[in-house]
């Protein structure tokens, strides 16, 4: 099984007529994802390589029965696009847009939490989600993923997710689902949400969690793992050498005062019984051993 998306998930792409939206939307379709429509205001009635385009998410959902959306629009338009999707009843929203102001992120997330509690937002500024062999929403390269499980992957970083997928696939270890939660300060989905879903997924037997400096999501994950999980977790935390007070590429990857350091996160996870690797390659190697011993 996979979490949140599978071979039956109908997906629309908000921003399908834009450069990035078209590139990744068509790649996702080529992978086998059911990409049933696109949304671009003013371009309803046209199509992108046979995929019908609608003026609004509401129209797209009514016509196609889509349950998920892939948002690839500029940062100014992204908050409105997310709320439009939620209002139209879309239950799963993936937003890859980078550079949305933190104040907008906070407003959008709290609006979803208050008014659309059953809607899940993944991102913003994330690579998306892939259930290998079934569904790929976002910018992950499908070719590096290996279907069949038993590992679930969750990460704040895109390239480190790809690295982790690659390490496992090369060793013949497949993945159930790989979730990129993104590196922004107000993510719609956090580690704990994904760990909970993996814990409840019978096909996921072990979890790889890749964190980085900033915030306290890894510490909260450590608490959850200690209290609620019986599946093995292997982790890696990026940013040991990051100086305080600087945003390391991701808006959320910042050590504030003495808070959010890699060291504190590593210690919290180790205390929860998590095997924490020193680099992504080592994390892959440890996971291969964990899977062989299952």
């Amino acid at each position: 099984m996979s979490i949140w998306v599978d071979e039956n998930t109908k997906v629309i792409v908000q921003g399908l007529t834009g450069g990035q939206g078209k590139f990744h939307g068509l790649r996702n379709r080529d992978y086998g994802t059911k990409v049933v429509g696109g949304v671009t205001p003013g371009k309803g009635g046209t199509d992108v390589d046979g995929i019908p385009v609608f003026n609004s998410v509401k129209e797209a959902v009514e016509a196609t029965g889509a349950v998920a959306t892939f948002i690839s629009v500029p940062p100014k338009a992204a908050p409105g696009a997310i709320l439009e999707a939620a209002e139209a009843g879309v239950g799963f929203i993936v937003c890859i847009t980078e550079h949305i102001p933190a104040q907008d992120q906070a407003r959008v997330f709290n609006t979803l939490r208050d008014s659309y509690p059953s809607t899940r937002l993944l991102g913003p500024n994330c690579p998306g989600i892939i259930s290998p062999g079934k569904c790929n929403i976002g910018i992950t390269s499908g070719s590096i993923a290996l279907p069949g499980g038993p590992v679930g992957i969750v990460s704040r970083s895109g390239t480190l997710t790809y690295q982790a997928i690659f390490e496992l696939s090369q060793n013949g270890v497949g993945q159930t689902t790989c979730v990129g939660i993104g590196g922004d300060p107000v993510p719609g989905t956090v580690f704990v949400d994904v760990l909970d879903a993996f814990q409840n997924d019978p096909e996921t037997k072990a979890v790889m969690m890749i964190g980085e400096i900033g915030g306290s999501a890894e510490e909260e994950a450590a608490k959850f793992i200690a209290e609620k999980m019986d599946k093995p977790v292997v982790s890696y935390i990026a940013g040991v050498t990051a100086p305080p007070g600087r945003k390391m590429g991701h808006a959320g990857a910042i050590i504030s005062g003495s808070k959010g350091t890699a060291k504190a996160k590593k210690e919290a996870l180790e205390k929860a019984g998590v095997k924490v690797a020193q680099n992504p390659t080592e994390a892959g190697q440890i996971m291969v051993e964990v899977v062989r011993a299952l």
Binding site: T159, L160, Q163, G183, A238, G239, A242, G249, A253, N279
Partner: peptide, 8 residues
């Protein structure tokens, strides 16, 4: 390439 990989 990528913030995570650069930090790593």
């Amino acid at each position: 390439n990528g913030a995570g990989l650069a930090m790593s």
